[in-house]
């Protein structure tokens, strides 16, 4: 799983930091999203998906199955396909 955040879109609802505090944090100044991790355990996937779904301004993009943690797609990432 891969997660990217778009701070320009973020409206600081804090829902990601509330529902997935291990993964997301908020900037002290204006509350905008910050990623605390880039590699995720399968046990965190449900929280991450919920954070992506709840984000009111589409600032969180969750891409399934592309991180080393779930051990699937990354092996093929460098094949140029």
């Amino acid at each position: 799983m891969q997660v990217s955040v778009d701070r320009d879109r973020c409206c600081s609802s804090g829902l990601c930091a509330l529902n997935a505090p291990e993964i997301f944090d908020q900037d002290e100044q204006d509350g905008r999203v910050m990623l605390r991790q880039t590699v995720f355990r399968p046990g965190q996937f449900a929280d991450i998906r919920l954070a992506g779904e709840l984000c009111p301004c589409g600032a969180i993009t969750v891409t399934e199955g592309v991180s080393p943690a779930d051990g699937t797609a990354d092996a093929q990432a460098g094949t140029g396909s």
């Binding site: 409206c11 600081s12 804090g14 930091a17 900037d27 204006d30 509350g31």
Partner: peptide
Amino acid sequence: HARLRRMVTGDFLVK
């Protein structure tokens, strides 16, 4: 909207 809102969002951080 974002310019004005971001001036107060820091006061309502979850933490």
